[in-house]
Amino acid sequence: MIIYEKEDSYICIAQHDHARISGDLLSAWADELFGSEDRREELNLAAYEHDSSWIELDRIPLWNDAASAPFSFRDFPGNIRFVFYSKAIDRLQETSEYAALLGSILYTTLAERFRNEDTISFVEGEFARQSVILEKLQLNVNLLQEHAKALLLCDELSLFACMEPPGTPREHYEWFANGFPYWFDRTGGTSLIAEWKDERTIALEPYPFSRIVETRLFYKEVGKAEAAKLGISQVYQKAELREQVITIVPK
């Protein structure tokens, strides 16, 4: 679950809802940046489903006693989350081996950034999965790399939309203050910059999409005082699911 704090409440965003935003973004990706239409549907499937492992984990938030706050995706126990990651990729592989491969590459890329004792067996197992699929499908590796990079970028752009209050100045983001690594700009640029124009609009430069993207952010707001009194699980389940439209435009 993606969680950020307000003065009197927690904003809670289910990971699968965050993935829906990344899928909406990737579905709008400009065709010429790929150079091919091959496996486009499977690429979109990978984006929409890449966080399906969190559906059960996010059914209710768990309380982190050490932090005196709910667990978020940043600090959720690794020995639990990585088991669910692998199971979700297993299920996706039954539908599309290519989408499962992309999901596996995304997860291992992120796990390698924060490598610790919880990630080792997961990463090794996923590397083995990737080798088997690569050998079986006889893929265009260059195209696969482009797809994996696009998936990672759309995942991170969705995090930009979700992990801080809408309208937050870019310099206040822990991870994205200096922009996003960008591999597709034919002018030689290496970074993509995202900025909130207002609380409902994000502007990007350069702009990798073929059209303006309208997407929806679903979230629940949980009052801190009520959660302390009744428990966060009960309060979260009763909270209204809210929706905010977000539009992504060229700068």
Rank of each mutant, 00 (worst) to 15 (best):
I3G: 02
E7G: 00
I11L: 02
I13A: 04
H18I: 00
S22N: 01
L25M: 01
L33S: 14
L33G: 14
G35Y: 13
D38L: 14
R39D: 14
L45Y: 11
H50Y: 05
I55F: 00
I60Q: 10
P61T: 12
L62F: 07
F71N: 01
S72G: 12
D75H: 01
D75M: 00
I80Q: 08
I80E: 10
Y85M: 01
Y98W: 13
A100L: 05
L101H: 03
L102V: 02
L110I: 08
L110A: 09
L110Y: 05
F114L: 11
E117C: 06
D118T: 10
I120S: 07
E126P: 01
E135N: 11
K136Q: 11
L137R: 14
N140E: 15
N140S: 12
A148Q: 03
C154H: 00
M163P: 06
M163V: 14
E164K: 15
P165E: 14
P165L: 07
H172A: 13
Y173F: 14
Y173M: 03
W175P: 03
G179E: 12
G179T: 08
P181I: 06
Y182W: 14
F184N: 15
F184G: 15
R186K: 13
T187N: 08
T187F: 02
I193L: 15
K197S: 06
R200P: 00
I202N: 06
Y207K: 09
R211N: 15
R211L: 13
T215E: 05
L217I: 07
F218T: 06
G223F: 10
E226R: 15
I232G: 10
L241C: 05
E243N: 03
Q244W: 02
Q244I: 08
V245W: 05
V245F: 02
